[in-house]
Design a protein around this nucleic acid. Structure first.
Lengths: 195, 195
DNA sequence: CGCGGAAGCGGAGCAGTGCTCAGCTTATTC
DNA sequence: GAATAAGCTGAGCACTGCTCCGCTTCCGCG
């Protein structure tokens, strides 16, 4: 929400205003919204936007930072209040639901997780680690299948989030979650369960 | 591979040559390759490309037509040679594997399936129907869970294909298939299976 | 063979994109 | 109030998809 070090008052005002405007435009047009559009709407030169957010990912990172932190914290919360298997499943569900905030954000996150220079890299790695802890806990309790690690869980969430982002399949998102995530995560499925 | 009705010899030559060039460039740069690049490489004006392929999807459709037909036929093949559950699983695997041919093609297919005007619409619907038949057969044999229909299977395949298309997760494609698809499709999973 | 018309072709042009950078403005300090 | 460093602007470049009109070429017919 703020910048490191000292900044001129006008610069900070522009930064905050840009972020506010970007939030609306990215919510409407998705992660590949026009940067020119954002700058223009904010009443600011294009160069100013690039000064504060040198890459598109830097802008997205600023936009998503608090949500990522909230999801990471949520993982700890759930681990403390729900049985291992349910905590894992709930958190997975919340993650996929979150991505509906901004179209196309899943793709960016997946790209960022193996690109250490990306501004989003750290947040994504942290998110994966939070999921990995929930997963391990569930595995140790025998509530999740073995043979999966944090990256697999990340991929599972990403795949589901991506499906929920596709207009043609979005209205089935809930059902797809049951079909794909539940059996993938459960170690002891009910024989013949039909959802 | 050819056009309907009568066409001038030079037009047909351009059509075929464009398709050949496009195949290479799309294989290299993905489904959103530069059309100008394709036209230039083919030694043809941009207008000529648009004359033969009025939309990007029309071009992709021409590129994918035979593969789609092959996959549809393959579904029939598998239904005739494998037990229902295995046929379904094998076909699903082949579908996801196919999409690695061209980056980004999954996204286009998913978009096309609910856009009747898309040049790819018919092919995608046909593919979904072929999958639906395999799925129903497996369900009737008790080898696949109930509560899934053709669109769910299509989504499952699309999700897996998309994951396989992401550089960060591609090298786990096989494992992800086991984690996501197998438990989603099996009606009678082995308790505690660990892959 | 030559000719006319229709089909096909080319690429400049428009509006949009991401991104850079030289020159100007302004906030802050002394 | 002046000096200075930080910040701001938007024209400009290279690219994108897509259109459209003037030109070329092919093909059937006489």
């Amino acid at each position: 929400m703020c910048q490191a070090g000292w900044v001129r008052a006008d610069a900070r005002k522009n930064y905050d205003h840009l972020l506010e405007v970007a939030r609306g435009i990215v919510a409407e047009h998705g992660a590949d919204a026009s940067l020119r559009d954002i700058a223009r709407t904010a009443g600011v030169g294009l160069g100013t936007l690039y000064r504060h957010f040198p890459t598109r990912e830097a802008l997205l990172e600023a936009l998503l930072r608090s949500s990522f932190a909230a999801l990471t914290a949520r993982a700890v919360d759930l681990a403390g209040t729900l049985p291992p298997g349910e905590a894992l499943l709930s958190w997975t569900r919340e993650c996929t639901r979150f991505t509906t905030t901004y179209h196309g954000v899943t793709q960016v996150m997946v790209a960022a997780i193996e690109e250490p220079d990306s501004a989003l890299h750290a947040s994504c790695v942290e998110l994966r680690a939070a999921g990995a802890r929930l997963l391990r806990r569930a595995q140790e309790a025998g509530d999740a299948r073995d043979g999966m690690d944090g990256t697999d869980l990340f991929a599972l969430i990403a795949g589901l989030a991506w499906l929920g982002d596709q207009a043609a399949l979005a209205d089935r998102a809930e059902h797809l979650f049951e079909v794909i995530a539940v059996p993938a995560l459960r170690a002891r499925p009910v024989v013949g369960e039909t959802v």
